[in-house]
Nucleic acid binder design. Sequence first.
DNA 1: CGAGTTTTTGAAGGACATCAACGTCTGTGG
DNA 2: CCACAGACGTTGATGTCCTTCAAAAACTCG
Lengths: 227, 227
Amino acid sequence: MQTFNASHLNRVPAAVALRGPANMPGHRDEMTRGQLRSFERGDEIFAEGDPCQFFYKVVSGTVRTAKLLADGRRQIDDFNLPGDVFGLESGECHRFTAEAIGKVEVIAYRRSDFRGLVHDDPAFSQRLMACMLTNLDRAHGHMVLLGRKTALERMASFLLDMARRMSSSDQVELPMQRADIADHLGLTIETVSRTLTQMVRAGLIRLTEAGRTVVLADKAGLRVLNT
Amino acid sequence: MQTFNASHLNRVPAAVALRGPANMPGHRDEMTRGQLRSFERGDEIFAEGDPCQFFYKVVSGTVRTAKLLADGRRQIDDFNLPGDVFGLESGECHRFTAEAIGKVEVIAYRRSDFRGLVHDDPAFSQRLMACMLTNLDRAHGHMVLLGRKTALERMASFLLDMARRMSSSDQVELPMQRADIADHLGLTIETVSRTLTQMVRAGLIRLTEAGRTVVLADKAGLRVLNT
DNA sequence: CGAGTTTTTGAAGGACATCAACGTCTGTGG
DNA sequence: CCACAGACGTTGATGTCCTTCAAAAACTCG
């Protein structure tokens, strides 16, 4: 049976992808067409409603993708880490906003090249599809979290997921602030803070340095909450 | 600029897709490879953990796709209506369950043909990608609903969405029961019921026939809640 | 009609939000 | 190096929206 694994796409090192002849149309490795861009903390990479001319892959740093309601309520659907692809959409305009959390480097790919890429390079097609399916899978998991989990369970799921993606050890340096975590988990900053305190008291985690670094002291305990 | 529009895929009429030579490998229209299947109310089309040998397109009826937590809590990520594609995944196993709500007909496509299809037919590739992107877009919208909307807003969004997808008029015949709506909107059946009653009292909707048919009496009022 | 299922309604409770104040960190300039 | 201002994070008191528990009403279908 055929497997679709996003790691194919993610494994392409940015440096290699950029090393090729960037402006040679029709070149075999289509990833060479991307261009590197840098952003500072808080910079907008694109906004809801912008025409989507590019899609992106994170090289370094963290990008938050979010939707806003008219009255300012915000839902961060994901934090995009190095290797993640974001900004691919079905319509003419971006349906969400992407902003840099701290210093960020991304590779921007022209969306107008898309049809050509898909036609010329089925392997590229597959990598992109795998990437979309991974995003979809994460989205489904997050819907369970938002629709059916308690604050404690949401936080446990979040910490375990961040640790898995960002760190090889049991320690995570969270790049985002409490407000971002709250808007990702469908909570308020106060509840995020209280839940973390509660976890510390329960011996599940330890906090250091302004609460930005989290040590997962009791992974098993956290996994029970992750369900 | 190139547009990715899921309507290409959805527009292919099931009958036409099935009319072709179903077992001829390499045939131009790869949609001909699907096989029609029927299900009754409550039947499981596939379960979480099943190897994913097929993906599906709804021909008639409604399919709910859901995730379950260990203790029975459920999150229905979407109701799949005629034309919708579901069951495409990145891994070897289905990560969610698909069940028939009432009588359902679907076309099942072999996932193992996938790589071949993508290689042989870039147009098919594009239709599938458009479909994934549409699903992803819906998922993002639903995350905002689950993370940041009130019960009243959730119900308004749900009713308007169902009306848009199922009906040309201002009247919707909901195929699912309250428990399904609750598990889709991240609420309880009691809150669903109370919210509908509240909408009736506010003149936003009218209910008939065991509350299965909803008349959107004040679409403008509902849209305000949809934000 | 009648048993079982689904929906509605009511009363009480709880988890998270809101409002408010205080504590802590960061970075800049004296 | 320390002081200070502003941003960020924590903690407390109170409120509220939704859930939970309970029961009645309405519907379905043999």
